[in-house]
Design a protein around this nucleic acid. Structure first.
Length: 456
RNA sequence: GUGGCCAUGGUGAAACGGUUAUCACGACAGUUUGUGGUACUGUCAUUACGGGUUCAAUUCCCGUUGGCCACCCCA
């Protein structure tokens, strides 16, 4: 029923059929409007695939090397799952979520991030009963209804890692280290910003202090910040307005207001990071937009962007010690997680001119002339494939010129030519595409011949 | 959600009120039916969609859709 409202009925032109009018005029004008991508959606075309494979394969390799197990969670979850974790008041939930009612009356949402779904799975499958911490990774599409820009889409892709079940600061450092090394392996020069936003004990106290401070400067803050002061005072810290930045620069820093436990935890994290080769800066004004974070938070940027007022983070994450408990999971299940934006990483890779592997070219191209040869070619194609010779062909073509031209474009090293004549004496021609020299060989010897030629 | 710039074949561009919308790349079909990477010929756009102004609109105006940029926010 709901769809009725979208069916805006256009007045149907009542062009009456005049007696002498040629029928042609009556054929409905086909809609000239071409189908178009929905705003913020993107096709990932064949020529983009090498970049995606490069990033996804690197991520998979790194995840395995660091001992993560793959998990996949649904694109669709209960609306409440995100409202409870990401936060009802957060922008992601309050204005960027694709949510709707199912025909059965459930309020559901397209996932705007991974953590909530993975934590739901952790609880639902009793993962508290396997050795802790549980290290999980995944990747896939996420949906956020905001205004698109380059490197920002409504359907976006992330790689995500979660370590659930340990409060150990070494875990935070391990995760950050994975992020740093993966981005480095991808060929990007990055640096991390790291901060601690405290726990439920010390953060409220700090926020109170911060509020006091900003109130004394209220008249110099921008309009947005006056709002933020009420809603989420921490966000005033990373406002881009110069005036606000100046005020924020002098603001009390959270690191000076952490409770003893948080302070110790954070110091330990930094200590572990110092042991490794992670390039990081302590960034006392770094806060993150999701409500569930506590303690350690971090983001990675391109080194060349670090001077920018608002560099786009390639990867971000932090600790969320309360989330699982808040969802009704086993008490005391601290966790850390992070996610990497694939589109942004690819953008950065392109800008940096990092070379990515192109799809392999075929070893041989199989050309056929005539109907009997075509039938034989179909078999031969399969024989070659099973002999692990990468073979290309375009069986729909007839002319040899055409096929040679395609062979040339495919960059095959050898073209095999199978025609009437060869069919009669069971031979096949092998043409070297470099120098044009040809050799006629028995079909029975073909695979040996090719293996020798291709040094397989 | 706010503000700005933009929209011409598959791709990249030109024309910017006035005859059949120009060029390059590309794709497809050929150059007398068995030899590619050069050459030649042909085909491939009701100028995003809808409306308005005008004798005339790709060109001006409005709306819609989409892209980009700056916010908001985030990856």
């Amino acid at each position: 029923m709901a769809h009725k409202q979208f069916m805006k009925k256009k007045p149907v032109p009542q062009n009456s059929l005049k007696d002498n009018e040629p029928l042609k005029k009556m054929t409905p004008k086909k809609s000239s409007k071409k189908p178009q991508l929905l705003r913020g959606m993107k096709d990932i075309l064949p020529q983009e695939q090498p970049y995606w494979e490069y990033v996804q394969e690197s991520a998979q390799q790194a995840s395995r090397a660091y001992g993560y197990q793959r998990i996949e969670v649904p694109v669709l979850e209960e609306y409440q799952l995100f409202a409870r974790t990401v936060g009802e008041s957060s922008d992601i939930v309050s204005k960027e979520m694709y949510d709707f009612e199912t025909p059965g009356g459930d309020h559901v949402a397209l996932r705007p991030e991974f953590t909530a779904g993975i934590c739901r799975a952790f609880i639902e499958h009793g993962m508290k009963n396997i050795p802790q911490p549980v290290k999980l990774w995944t990747d896939g599409p996420l949906f956020r209804y905001d205004r698109p820009q380059a490197g920002r889409y409504r359907q976006l892709h992330q790689v995500d890692w979660e370590i659930i079940g340990s409060h150990q600061p070494a875990i935070d450092a391990e995760l950050i280290s994975l992020g740093s090394h993966l981005l480095g392996d991808l060929g990007l020069e990055v640096m991390a910003r790291v901060n601690s936003i405290g726990c439920r004990e010390c953060r409220p106290a700090y926020i109170a202090v911060l509020k006091e401070y900003f109130k004394t400067h209220k008249k110099n803050l921008c309009e947005d910040c006056k709002n933020r002061l009420l809603k989420n005072p921490l966000r005033v810290l990373d406002c881009k307005e110069e005036a606000c930045q100046a005020i924020a620069a002098e603001a009390p820093q959270i690191v000076d207001h952490l409770c003893e436990a948080c302070r110790e935890h954070f110091m330990k994290v930094l200590e572990y990071l110092d042991e490794g080769d992670v390039v990081y800066h302590l960034h006392p004004r770094l806060v993150r937009g999701l409500d569930y974070y506590s303690h350690t938070v971090f983001e990675f940027y391109l080194q060349k962007d670090q001077e920018e007022a608002s560099p786009a983070a390639l990867l971000g994450g932090g600790r969320y010690d309360y989330l699982i408990q808040d969802l009704g999971g086993p008490g005391e299940t601290p966790a850390v997680g992070m996610a990497m934006g694939i589109e942004r990483v690819i953008l950065a890779i392109k800008e940096a001119g990092v070379p990515v592997a192109q799809p392999p070219t075929p070893d041989v191209f199989l050309a056929q002339i005539g109907e009997t040869a075509r039938k034989r070619a179909l078999q031969l194609f399969e024989d070659l494939r099973q002999a692990e010779i990468a073979v290309a062909a375009n069986i729909s073509k007839n002319g040899l010129s055409d096929q040679l031209s395609l062979a040339n474009k495919s960059q095959a090293k050898i073209t095999l030519i199978l025609g009437q004549k060869e069919m009669i004496d069971n031979t096949i021609i092998a043409r070297d595409m470099e120098n044009g020299s040809q050799e006629t060989i028995l079909q029975t010897k073909l695979i040996d011949f090719l293996k020798k030629q291709l040094k397989k």
